[in-house]
Simulated scan of single mutants.
Amino acid sequence: MRVGILSYPMLFQREGGLQVQVRETIAALNHLDPCMSAELVDPSRQQLAEFDLIHVFSAFNGNVRLVESAADLGLPVVLSPLVAPSWNRSAGLRARVADRLAGRISSYSLQTSYAQTKRALQLADLVIALGEAEREAIVSGFLTDRAKIRIFPNGVSRQFFTAQPEQFRHRTGIVGPFALCVGAISPYKNQLGLAHALAGSELPLVLIGPVAREDHAYLQNVLKSPWVRWMGALEHHDPLLASAFAAASVVALPSRGEIFPLSVLEALAAGTPVVMTQDSALHIDGAEQILRKVAWNDAAGLREAMVALASRPPQRASVQALVEAFTWQRVAAQVADCYRELVPEAHGAV
């Protein structure tokens, strides 16, 4: 079976969770079954008709056209939409009203991103959600048939389970407790709010992540806090990143919203507790004391949770145990079963 993987054209011009998800899924699929070949499609050189099945990652950024093209060819389509949990019934209703108004004003020559996402979800033969919260958002916000939605959480790369703190501490000279935040530097990720929350806590803050040109001024505001240090961006496979997770006393992700953040899984795999936004699809049974969730703008709650975890750290092994089952091999096996369900006659053919 030949599987074509697609997303929006600029996907790999930056680094983030989606990029890791796509790479790791492709690699795990190709190691799983010699009769299955998964590859990134270059639409400028390859025809979708060359593939037995198309898997589109992200329902946004114009990706509905990919789904439409595959559907027109009669190809089965799997869609990993990455829908934010904030899409509930009322938000969907407002978006549909806005879409109708936009259509009337523009003589129906304008289509909203909501309408495009909704159409992509409707056309897909199977939709993969990362958690129960995302599935509910897909159903309630976009009126998608619940029966065609499966839940497969992301995996964690193995290097985070074996990470040790010594490399990071040797490279940086940081020897005491510190908080870590990994992600793009931006108001949406809320590093400034995190820095303010930790003011006077005696818990230094280390930031790792890229910064876009338009957010350089934001970064400078964050760095006005003398207890904040920015290390720039690190590649996902860089051993220093895994070592940073292992060295940190607590990892924070106080974003305005997250779907299924890989950095949280990676921190837990390294044995480090996490404080993150409550607006997320990520849920791990039994993790309430190690994975704390607070409102992104609750500075007092954020500070209290981080200081508590840093001052009374859980055993590393107990933290890692929470995410032992989150492997990319397991994800690939579940996804491959879906492919075979949609293209049973192609099983055994490459």
Rank of each mutant, 00 (worst) to 15 (best):
L268C: 03
R312A: 15
L192R: 07
V22Y: 04
P34V: 13
F57C: 03
Y114M: 03
F160Q: 08
K293P: 12
W87E: 01
W227R: 04
S280M: 03
P314N: 02
L53C: 09
A115I: 04
F161S: 08
N88F: 01
N30W: 04
G183T: 01
N61G: 00
L53S: 02
S109P: 02
S69P: 06
S69L: 12
P261C: 14
L198A: 13
V3A: 15
E266F: 05
S201A: 15
V156Y: 03
A346D: 10
S80V: 10
V335H: 04
L241A: 09
L342S: 05
A305C: 00
F260G: 11
A120I: 10
P43D: 03
N221G: 03
G131W: 09
E202M: 13
Q46T: 12
R45S: 14
D125A: 11
L234H: 06
S69Q: 11
G301M: 02
P76V: 05
R89F: 10
Q164R: 15
L82C: 11
V67Y: 07
S113I: 01
Y218G: 08
A325I: 01
L18G: 06
P273F: 07
T162G: 06
F161D: 09
Q122M: 12
R146G: 04
V156G: 11
P34H: 15
L240R: 02
G103E: 05
D145K: 02
V22R: 01
A242K: 07
L223Q: 08
S86F: 13
F142R: 06
A71N: 02
W87K: 07
M306G: 14
V22E: 05
P81Q: 10
V156F: 12
R104N: 06
A195F: 06
L268Y: 01
A195E: 05
A27V: 06
E132N: 01
F51M: 10
Y8V: 00
F57Q: 02
Q191W: 11
R45Q: 13
L241Q: 09
P9G: 01
H236F: 15
A244M: 05
I128W: 14
R150H: 12
N88M: 03
A49V: 00
I138H: 11
A184G: 07
P85S: 09
S140T: 07
R65Y: 09
L180P: 05
P165I: 08
G232V: 03
D285K: 13
H216V: 14
A179G: 12
